[in-house]
Amino acid sequence: MAEVKAVTPNNKEDMPEEIPGVMTTSSSAISDFLKKTKAQDLINWGRKNSLWFTVNAMGCCGVELLSTGMAHYDTDRFGIIPRNSPRHADVLIISGYVTKKYLPALQRIWDQMPAPKWVICFGDCAISGGPFYESYSTAQNIDEIFPVDVYVPGCPPRCEALIQAFVELQQKIAAKKDKGTEY
């Protein structure tokens, strides 16, 4: 596997200057301007109502994550749709323990997701280590690695808790208090 760098906000300086047929810009003037206007409210309204999430079931919490996306809870009515490709997704749900071996892959998934993107910490393991808080094989303090917007405690939390987390994330986005938009 290729080297995976630490997660950093999209670095404007890193953008390639010359792509044939494509106009690139290294400035975010347009989006900075939009943030000051009422148009951002409309954009956020659109964003908050289409929170597609990646299906990466990591621990036992992953089972709840999967069943949330199924027909019983029907999250599609909120615009919350499970996506199998990180490139289609807006929300990364850290659903369980992050082992040291899996962390690079998770960072890679996060890097592949197009901005704006959000993180939900789902389950005790992702928040504080949970039952594995002293394990030799898990990475701890995930909140220092990813910009987490919503924490869902529980071992595992119920599917309703995950839907609640999405609702809170929607409220955060509408209130422009979320961390993910900057990514």
């Binding site: 928040i127 504080s128 280590g129 808080y133 002293e134 394990s135 030799y136 898990t138 701890q140 303090n141």
Partner: peptide, 10 residues
């Protein structure tokens, strides 16, 4: 090598 910088909220 167990993590000692963990679960600050616990």
């Amino acid at each position: 090598g167990f993590p000692n910088k963990t679960a600050r909220n616990l």
